[in-house]
Amino acid sequence: MRQVIAIWRREMTACFLSPVAYVTLVAFLGVSGFTFWLACFRNEGNPEPVSVLLCGSLMFWLPIMITVVAMRLFVEEKRSGTIETLLTAPVTEGQIVLGKYLGAFTFLLLALVPALAYPFVLERLSPALTLENLDLGALLGASVVTVLVTGTFLAIAVVASLTTRNQIVAAICTFFMLWLALLGGWLLGESHGVPAVLADGLSITRHIDVFSRGTLEIRPIVFHVTLTGLLLFTAVRMLESRRWK
């Protein structure tokens, strides 16, 4: 556990000292805040809860944010050759993957925290919006699904980061896979027959919709947690296989 914490701290520090991460953070907060502002004004008079609009605004830009944060996770180590040092250090591959994943995850969560203030800013300024209209339960649901989806997406990005030595290739792969995960789920939900049944469990857009309306379900939680675990396990095995090559 000490090793995991050491790697986590190193990764966190790298994130917070990196100008790229700050530029990404500022851009993410700017565009997601603007999207939320626009969504609220365009949906005035419609029965859309604020929590759904908030979740939608964040999810739209989340793939870009995750891509930028995660693309350097392993690619940078490989490019600079420090991966060999890391692999020969007295840490297991599992500890390396977990430490790096948790470091990036913590940075992403800290970046998402200011976005939670968006609805309360509106509530302070709007004469018609009250705390009851905001529906704190639904906001909690929106927060839970944002954490779950962020965790899953980051795990996808970790695997993508292990497949190549080039940051641009890693970024393109990650971005493509994250949007495929979002759009694929949406397409499943729009289809009929067996895909529609699968969509109930697999569609990330459906999970976002259900949770951001204030309903917590066990199935999507199991889906996201197990998928994240599977992806991290894949990342560990991929890293281990380097020893044998």
Partner: peptide
Amino acid sequence: LRLDMDERQARAAFVLLTVALPLTA
């Protein structure tokens, strides 16, 4: 969803959401 904001309030919301929070970061 009801906001009933006047122009000044809408502008303040825009500035806070799209400028102030990113500026803090």
